[in-house]
Design a binder for these strands. Structure first.
Length: 702
RNA sequence: GCGUUCAUAGCUCAGAUGGAUAGAGCAACAGCCUUCUAAGCUGUGGGUCGCAGGUUCGAAUCCUGCUGGACGCACCA
């Protein structure tokens, strides 16, 4: 509970009401209270120009004078929490009682633990978040990392605030590209099948690259690919259900899954992914081999099986990668599922007069967008857009979402404005739609609930040879760099240690007893030095992952990222490892101070600070930063912008490191140390919370 | 050509939704490890907020124009 702001709010509401005879709602009052840009100006302020509607007219300076006098006269009402009021230009500044402020903040963090900073909304929403969504004909490159990490982080932030989140991975498992891949498989006679078994994704990638190259010179490639894709899609629609019945069947299905997922049982997790497993079911006796090639390439069913095999191999690979960086989904969906119904969409939109035929293709004209929205090709096969329409309606039936968030690059902005526009049309023309009850119901309630969370491109990223950087190589590069740094540091520690031992031995021989400090130091340092090989591996891996992920989350999403290896591989300053390092520093300190956290909670003494202490100003800065967490979380949700939290965490870590550098705790008496332990725990709690929300691994030691 | 979007220190970016003196980190230079992890800390230098207008008490932030970049614009996703 924010007692300082609340108190100030009622204070100002009362003043306006009683002195100016104007009623102000608490929400309006909240907007009047701002934070000065600098601590020396105070902690809260009222700006005269915002007060004009509340009886403070005239020049800002004179209005501020009026306001200042009234506040001053009634200062006794807030004297319990505030020290003083000052006037400065057009502003009236309020200074909190700093000792009280710090102890309130620290107490609240220690009491609420990992819940601290939660911004609970009046009404929790069901938010479906579609992110990562790789195209499985292509390997998982670094480009996918941004969507993956932004989406995962947003999911965590929404969940942290108490919203229901459904994390959806919408696999690009369909389209002409698969026709190309199948074409490649069937055309080339020199496929290495034993390698296919060992590293399928690599072979698929080679096929992909090769067919694209051939396409440049050979026009028959595209022709064949299109034909094969049509064969595939037609085969899949053979024994299809109607969209209307399908919608009826899946209605509310998500509810069960959501509940299960939230209970966290392993069966539930499996069940939620079963759709993919089912779709990827492949007959036992069919294997990729030279002999079976004709089987795959000759018939429609063969191609269908081949497609399933490619799909399955890719998904397995993706899951492995996701797991390694701590990403998980509640549901895997595929475009192929929606393809089954995209013809229904085309027919409904045509019949209802929303779509029309132009140059043989089906298009929708969306208000305000010049480019026509293509929903079907002239050969009748489906397109990205029509499949997306099906998908959203299905999701609405399944999950009844309040928000559907697409975390997709900004280059697809046009696609999404067309998609969103079509649902606007469907809502406006709800009566005209010639379709079943289910379709009309769901399709008309989607408008306004779709959000495109776009992000900028990563520019200039390439390896020495190729142009696509595989995520795993990227992480490995970061890991090696972290390892290098770690080993360097271990070596320095080792040197210091041996010098110390020599020194002590010398002193011992001279008869000076320093055994106690020696053993303490040896113990401490061997803790670090004694890290086993696996530990060193894990540490460097976590640091590497932290660096890579933070790099994608530290700037505002919409700006393009100028990729620079040196930037990513530097672990100093505004980086993930800096945050991880700060946490491990606190850990180390807490270990040395022998902390009992339950003790801390029950002992009011833990939260009492004195402003006469030399470190108080620095503690106040830390407390003030911590106090801002809730606002930061709130605006991260508001803007769908994880970077708000990255910046926040960097600031907090910086304040803490300054404190750490300037004030020592070891060796001080316990009464002095106790409240500071609570402060340390608070900083750690907040940093760890944010690292979790940003999908960055936390380390005990570095 | 039309549309979207961006332009802040040498480089990478913040800038609380129009408010007080535009801030960090890298890089450069000068310092701090026999005392809690130097992946840290301290200090110095570095700015016509792309350019020109406009809106008002007040603009890096809003509107218009220009310049420059990125992305997108009919059967790819």
């Amino acid at each position: 509970m924010d007692i300082f702001k609340e108190t100030l709010k009622t204070f100002i509401v009362n003043i306006i009401k009683e002195e100016k005879k104007i009623d102000v709602s608490s929400l309006q009052a909240e907007k009047l209270i701002k934070n000065p840009p600098d601590d020396s100006f105070g902690d809260y302020c009222l700006a005269a120009y915002y007060m004009q509607n509340y009886g403070f007219q005239g020049k800002p300076e004179t209005a501020a004078g009026d306001l200042y006098n009234l506040c001053g006269r009634r200062f006794a009402e807030i004297a319990g929490l505030f020290d003083k009021i000052e006037i400065k230009g057009a502003y009236v500044n309020f200074f909190v009682k700093r000792e009280r402020f710090v102890s309130e903040v620290v107490k609240e963090v220690v009491d609420s633990g990992s819940d601290y900073g939660r911004d609970v909304p009046e009404k929790p929403l069901t938010a479906a978040i579609d992110f990562s969504s790789p195209n499985i004909a292509k390997p998982f490159g670094v480009g996918h990392l941004r969507s993956t990490v932004i989406g995962m982080s947003l999911s965590k932030i929404y969940e942290f605030c108490g919203h229901k989140v459904i994390k959806i991975n919408y696999l690009g498992d369909f389209g002409t590209q698969f026709g190309k891949l199948i074409t490649a498989f069937c055309r080339y006679g020199d496929i290495n099948f034993s390698e296919f078994e060992k590293d399928p994704v690599k072979v698929l990638y080679e096929l992909y690259v090769r067919i694209h190259k051939d396409e440049q010179t050979d026009a028959t490639v595209e022709e064949e690919a299109k034909k094969r894709f049509k064969t595939l899609e037609d085969f899949m629609s053979l024994n299809k259900r109607g969209f209307e019945e399908y919608l009826g069947a899946i209605k509310g299905l998500g509810d069960k899954k959501i509940k299960n997922i939230f209970s966290g049982s392993p069966e539930a997790a499996e069940a939620s992914e079963s759709t993919v497993a089912d779709a990827a079911y492949i007959p036992e006796n069919i294997k990729l081999s030279e002999e079976n090639k004709n089987l795959f390439c000759g018939t429609a069913e063969g191609q269908y099986n081949l497609w399933k095999i490619f799909r399955k191999l890719s998904i397995e690979e993706f899951k492995r990668i996701y797991k390694s960086i701590g990403i998980e989904f509640d549901s895997y969906e595929g475009e192929a599922e929606s393809a089954e119904f995209s013809k229904d969409i085309k027919e409904i939109l045509l019949k209802s007069g929303i779509a029309e035929i132009s140059e043989g293709a089906a298009i929708v004209n969306v208000k305000g967008i010049k480019a026509p929205a293509l929903i079907a090709k002239s050969d009748g096969t489906s397109l990205y857009l029509s499949r997306d329409i099906v998908t959203v309606i299905s999701r609405m039936a399944k999950y009844n979402f309040d928000k559907m968030i697409y975390v997709v690059g900004s280059e697809q902005a046009l696609h999404f404005s067309q998609l969103f526009g079509i649902f606007g049309i469907l809502k406006e023309n709800a009566e005209k739609i010639k379709a079943g009850k289910n379709f009309k119901h769901y399709a008309s309630m989607i408008d306004g609930k779709l959000i495109h969370v776009k992000f900028g491109r990563i520019i200039g990223m390439s390896t020495r040879k190729g142009n696509l950087v595989f995520l795993e190589d990227y992480i490995e590069e970061a890991r090696l760099k972290a390892l290098e740094k770690l080993e360097e540091r271990l070596k320095i520690l080792e040197n210091n240690l041996s010098v110390e031992i020599k020194d002590a031995a010398k002193k011992l021989s001279e008869g000076i007893e320093e055994l106690e400090t020696l053993t303490e130091n040896v113990e401490q340092q061997s803790l670090i030095h004694g890290q086993k090989k696996e530990q060193i591996y894990l540490t460097s891996l976590k640091v590497g992952i932290g660096a890579v992920i933070f790099n994608d989350l530290k700037t505002r999403r919409t700006t393009d990222v100028n990729f620079n290896w040196d930037n990513v591989l530097s672990f100093e300053g505004q980086t993930g490892p800096y945050l991880q390092y700060t946490v491990s520093r606190i850990n180390s300190l807490l270990n040395r101070l022998d902390v009992n956290e339950t003790d801390l909670k029950n002992d009011a003494q833990s939260f009492r600070f004195s402003k006469n202490d030399a470190d108080f100003d620095d503690i106040f800065l830390i407390a003030k930063q911590i106090y801002g967490l809730k606002t930061a979380v709130h605006s991260a949700v508001e803007q769908n912008e994880p970077s708000v939290l990255s910046t926040f965490a960097l600031d907090l870590a910086s304040y803490f490191n300054k404190y750490y550098q300037n004030h020592r705790l070891i060796g001080k008496n316990y009464d002095y140390v106790k409240p500071r332990i609570a402060m340390l725990v608070s900083v750690k709690t907040v940093l760890v919370s944010i690292l979790n929300l940003l999908c960055i691994p936390v380390l005990d030691k570095m």
